[in-house]
Design a binder for these strands. Structure first.
Lengths: 337, 337
DNA sequence: CTTGGCACTCGTAGACTGGGAGTGCCAGGC
DNA sequence: GCCTGGCACTCCCAGTCTACGAGTGCCAAG
């Protein structure tokens, strides 16, 4: 359908347009790239590419720019992910290695990714449901109130207040804590509901209401906090790019957790990159934005996702390289801590 | 120096300019506001106001707009903080009351404030140094590693990893935990360094290195985490306002914790509002932005600050009312939890 | 001190223009 | 059959010009 030269021309159009931000014409194309054919030939090929929907012209008698479909073909067939330079790798490594807790890892990651790609970076906190329990702590904080603290193997700490409706002896708390940890230590969160099913039966009758209250809060947390925490950085980079008009829409999308979740997409194999171009991410107002996302995790299993959002007119090979590299390093850091 | 009529004219100029976003001329002013004098008289007064630096004209033969100095006079002398409507109060109350932990309180607050004022809202997490210890937890997480968890009376939870360089018996950990809590429970963080000074001497010689390591991490946390955590929301509101050009600068400033800290200013009496107008906040690139901030806290003592950032051309009375109200409610919520 | 009148300034919007980049098409050459 | 040079055409863009109108400053009179 499209011979090699037409593909080469499409690639050249994408590359030139990305770097110059101006519609590219047949003459400039034939000159800058050693295509070995005349501008007239290029024009003929361009006409075909346009007819097939890969490129378009903003106005009659202007150069051509890629369509979403054109970028898609470019990403799928015409480009290869560009590995980072050694210096960049080392920078990532040292920057991330300095982090001292999960919050810090995430906030460093998102800033790093934004700086590396000069786009908006988005990072999702490691999912609760796919982590496992490292420790559970119960702390009495006031009459009738316990603080339930969950620590996961990824270092994430969740806290919830439990109303116990009544005073509670210290050793009851200690007993309950011991029981909980015995049941749950090392369990993945997916197994938690089953693992605690018989727990109320194992405490004394008088402590049972408290145990039930604690468990219900615990299970609630697993569900509610599945609306995962997501952070972003680098919004300033939007002001440079092509979002002169749609900027408001983009900023609004960034502040909606739910929208961000959908942008990053479903977790999949951590090794694969997801690229969504323009209208492919089914979101009103983000039709001129692309999202490049990847899962990250430990032991080859994805915990959560991270990625960047930028204009469709974006350096795909370079950005994909950066996202992939950062995702890998974050996985390593998490596994090592 | 400025008689009542001139002040009334300045007030009218500020109000009209804020609502229309267009330089206001003498004729429109005399008509819209019942000043009882002719446009010519208004012109004379405007000439005086301009000479004194309260207003200026963007171009010769355009209307006048307020200068920073003009806004300052308006805020200090010509306006009163506008209380929120009953409906708004109730909305704040119910929205904040649904929060179930500190993170949630802060994130709800910042979104609420952004929506209420239609500006960018900024909220600082309750300061560690001004809180007190509610509980300290030590959890062994791996060979040679302890997780130190700090819970404050404001519900903030801090976590740090301690390298113990060596295996550790469970009862050593328990002993250390008990000692720490005995020393520190209820203490304000300011008192912590003194309170733990003699602690190493009170553990057995073999556990002493671990105790020292834990303490050094604890003290480090107090210092480091004084670079407080700050969040913002409502960046999309910038895209509507006057920041067509300086938007990049503003977005960059918002992503710098340090800059945000400086914008919110020093904590003071929680009851007072700080208003910084244009160049008054000594920051490059934020010369057309104003910041309205207030402390919030419990028991009349400020824990941290919150505020909004918007264009100098802002509805000061309304925004000040919203900031003050939100600050009060947050204080109440924190005190009640 | 206020007011109406008046000349002046200057930014803005609209119309017009020439130049240039780029295209599509066509006829001729390998 | 595909490539190429030539050519007419389209249309954006930047610049110039003009008319207009809002707003001012000043002045002389009330």
């Amino acid at each position: 359908m499209l011979d090699d030269r037409k593909l080469a021309i499409l690639r050249a159009i994408v590359e030139d347009y990305v770097s110059t931000n101006e519609p590219v014409g047949s003459k400039a194309l034939a000159e800058r790239h050693a295509l070995g054919v005349s501008p007239a030939t290029v024009r003929n090929d361009m006409a075909v590419l346009e007819e097939q929907g890969y490129i378009t012209q903003p106005h009659t008698s202007a150069g051509r720019i890629p369509t979403d479909k054109g970028y898609r073909l470019f990403v799928d067939k015409l480009s290869t992910i560009k590995p980072l330079s050694g210096a960049e790798r080392r920078a990532i490594e040292t920057f991330l290695a300095g982090a001292y807790d999960l919050d810090d890892v995430v906030s460093r990651t998102v800033r790093l990714l934004a700086q590396l790609t000069r786009q908006v970076a988005v990072v999702q906190y490691p999912s609760l449901i796919r982590s496992s329990v490292r420790h559970i702590e119960l702390v009495p904080v006031a009459a009738g109130r316990l603080l339930l603290i969950l620590i996961t193997d990824t270092g994430r700490v969740e806290q919830r207040v439990v109303e116990t409706h009544g005073e509670l002896a210290d050793d009851s708390v200690a007993q309950l804590r011991a029981l909980l940890n015995a049941c749950l230590d090392g369990r993945s969160f997916g197994e938690v509901p089953l693992a605690v099913a018989d727990l109320p039966a194992r405490v004394s009758a008088e402590d049972r209401p408290v145990a039930v209250a604690v468990l219900s809060v615990l299970l609630e947390t697993l569900v509610e906090r599945n609306e995962e925490k997501i952070v972003f950085a680098g919004a300033a980079n939007l002001a440079l790019g092509d979002f002169s008009k749609g900027l408001r829409d983009v900023l609004e999308a960034l502040e909606e957790q739910v929208v961000l979740m959908r942008l990053l997409g479903e977790a999949g194999d951590p090794a694969t990159l997801t690229v969504r171009i323009g209208a492919e991410n089914q979101l009103q107002g983000l039709t001129s934005a692309s999202v490049i996302a990847a899962g990250y995790g430990m032991d080859g299993q994805a915990l959560a996702r991270l990625g960047v959002l930028g204009p469709t007119r974006m350096d795909y090979p370079g950005t994909m390289g950066a996202v992939r590299a950062v995702a890998r390093y974050v996985g390593q850091i998490l596994a090592g801590s």
